[in-house]
């Protein structure tokens, strides 16, 4: 029953009811990232407002529950925060995902994203969880250009 630690109720909930899904205007940058090994893909847009505040993260894509739920959680955690704040969340999430299940998650920083801790034990699925988060990081960098 290793599976139960990966398919947390919260992940399934985000998969079935994705938050902020759909591409919206206006936006400062749009990126398209794919995972060639499994075909998962995401198109993601960011709109950065005054004082470096993320006004919207909109996205569309297809893939497994982990990749889709991760995008939904990303939307919730980033919208309304400053670019700087969100990048530290991305860093913490990346650290958790690449920790092979041995890294203690900082719940204060990650919020709902701690539900993905179990995914870190499955090297083949880590990139599913990271797909939208890496796309977000890329989009933020491009929006600043």
């Amino acid at each position: 029953m290793i599976g139960e630690s990966m398919y947390q109720e919260l992940i399934l909930e985000h998969y079935k009811h994705p938050q902020g899904r759909g591409l919206r205007e206006p936006y400062d940058a749009e990126v398209h990232h794919v995972n060639p090994t499994c075909g998962d893909e995401i198109t993601l847009r960011v709109k950065v407002g005054d004082a470096g505040k993320i006004e919207d993260v909109s996205y569309d894509g297809q893939g497994c529950s982990i990749s889709q739920a991760a995008a939904s959680v990303l939307h919730e955690l980033t919208t309304g925060s400053t670019v700087e704040e969100t990048l530290s969340v991305v860093d913490e999430f990346t650290r958790l995902m690449q920790g092979r299940g041995k890294v203690e998650a900082d719940e204060d920083v990650l919020g709902d994203a701690v539900a993905f801790a179990g995914v870190a034990k499955f090297p083949a699925r880590v990139k599913c969880a990271l797909l939208s988060w890496m796309a977000y990081k890329d989009a933020v960098v491009r929006s600043a250009r």
Binding site: M1, G3, C38, G63, C64, I66, Q68, R125, C128
Partner: peptide, 14 residues
């Protein structure tokens, strides 16, 4: 409504 990667993962894990 269920992605094959999730199907394969649960079949294997459980």
């Amino acid at each position: 409504g269920i992605h094959p990667h999730d199907v394969g993962q649960i079949l294997d894990d459980e």
